[in-house]
């Protein structure tokens, strides 16, 4: 449980970080708060020779552009994000998701970018392998899964809390490469492959998240189910955004993203379609929640069975809909 030796490089800009990343290739890792990376290094799950630290770079406070879109620096700590008045006003969903991560101390270290780019987790994988589970599993470049006997694939789950919230908000990510800067819908950051969860490659740095301004009346809700309510990854999470027609009764469009029960965040497209154009009602919420469960196929993980996660996801999704609907009723004139 000791941090192995590594070279620590402190670039003076994101651009330099990107250059350094490319230069060192797979020998290097980007680090900011280190709350995901350092424990993994202590476990011997990753052994970078070089750490390129973004820690010294100042994070730009959240801004709203002329279109009303919210720009959030990926280097913001989760604590700063959770208490930013701008974020709270524009996207309370993101504030809530950020506040639900781990503990106060970790939120002060961990950044939004780190939370979005965290590695997938599994109880068999996230430990040292000196005398327990020594034979490598899929995620340690082996050919077995300890979790599902004779399993043909890796079952490690992606547990970011902010990712489902941002995907439901339709956020896009700015990726900085040495020669270009590109935008991609945040959901495209995720491969759905637990062995390589992110689509970005060597030399690329996630620098910013842009959350589009809602076009109409909106209700949002984030649910994170845990056993002890803090200092814990989610058993499951669900982020719901309901955009309403101006009458405040018909749902114009819905975005539903489920977290922690799959290899990446899961958009519940069928559920979203079933919600669009409908009048909000308890029955609708129940039907759509069931649909969300049916299209999500939760992975069993960390002691939770798939059957339980299905049952719980249905309840939490339905509750998220009700909370989002309550928000709409409470603030009928406020398109936030």
């Amino acid at each position: 449980m000791r941090l192995p030796k590594f070279e620590h490089v402190q670039p003076s800009s994101r651009e330099e970080a990107s250059r350094l990343l490319q230069e060192h290739g797979s020998r290097a890792r980007l680090v900011s708060g280190g709350t995901d990376l350092y424990p993994r290094m202590k476990y011997g799950l990753t052994r970078p020779d070089v750490l390129i630290s973004l820690k010294g770079l100042p994070a730009t406070p959240p801004t709203v552009d002329p279109n009303g879109d919210l720009h959030v620096d990926a280097l913001m700590t989760l604590a700063d994000l959770a208490r930013s008045q701008t974020v709270l006003e524009k996207t309370p969903l993101l504030s809530e998701a950020a506040l639900s991560v781990a503990s106060n101390q970790i939120r002060h270290m961990g950044t939004l970018g780190g939370n979005l780019c965290q590695e997938n987790r599994c109880p068999y994988y996230n430990q040292t392998h000196t005398f327990q589970f020594v034979e490598p599993c899929f995620k340690r470049n082996g050919d077995q899964c300890y979790l599902i006997p004779k399993g043909k694939k890796c079952w490690a789950v992606f547990s970011s809390d902010t990712a489902p919230a941002l995907i439901s908000l339709g956020a896009s990510a700015t990726i900085l490469a040495p020669k270009e800067r590109r935008q991609l819908p945040l959901e495209n950051l995720y491969t759905g492959d637990p062995l390589k969860p992110l689509t970005i490659s060597d030399g690329e740095v996630l620098t910013e998240i842009i959350i589009p301004c809602p076009l109409s009346l909106r209700g949002t809700a984030f649910m994170k189910f845990t056993l002890r309510g803090g200092m814990e990854y989610a058993a499951l999470s669900v982020a719901v955004v309901l955009d309403m027609e101006n009458d405040g009764v018909l749902c114009r469009a819905a975005r539903i993203t489920v977290g922690s029960v799959g290899a990446g965040p899961i958009r519940a497209g069928k559920g979203e379609n079933a919600m669009a154009g409908q009048r909000l009602s308890k029955n609708l919420f129940q039907e759509v929640a069931q649909l969300v469960v049916s299209e999500t196929h939760p992975f069993p993980h960390h002691g939770y069975s798939a059957a339980y996660l299905r049952a719980c996801l249905e309840v939490e999704t339905r509750r998220a809909f009700s909370l989002a609907a309550e928000q709409i009723t409470r603030n009928p004139g406020d398109p936030g």
């Binding site: 109880p123 068999y124 996230n126 430990q127 327990q132 589970f133 300890y146 056993l227 002890r228 309510g229 803090g230 200092m231 814990e232 990854y233 960390h302 002691g303």
Partner: peptide, 20 residues
């Protein structure tokens, strides 16, 4: 599982916190 521990950390072995 088979004599090996799956949750060997304070993170995954859930002791109550002050909130509980």
């Amino acid at each position: 599982k088979e004599g090996r521990t799956l949750n060997p950390s304070w993170l995954d072995y859930r002791m109550p916190t002050i909130h509980n």
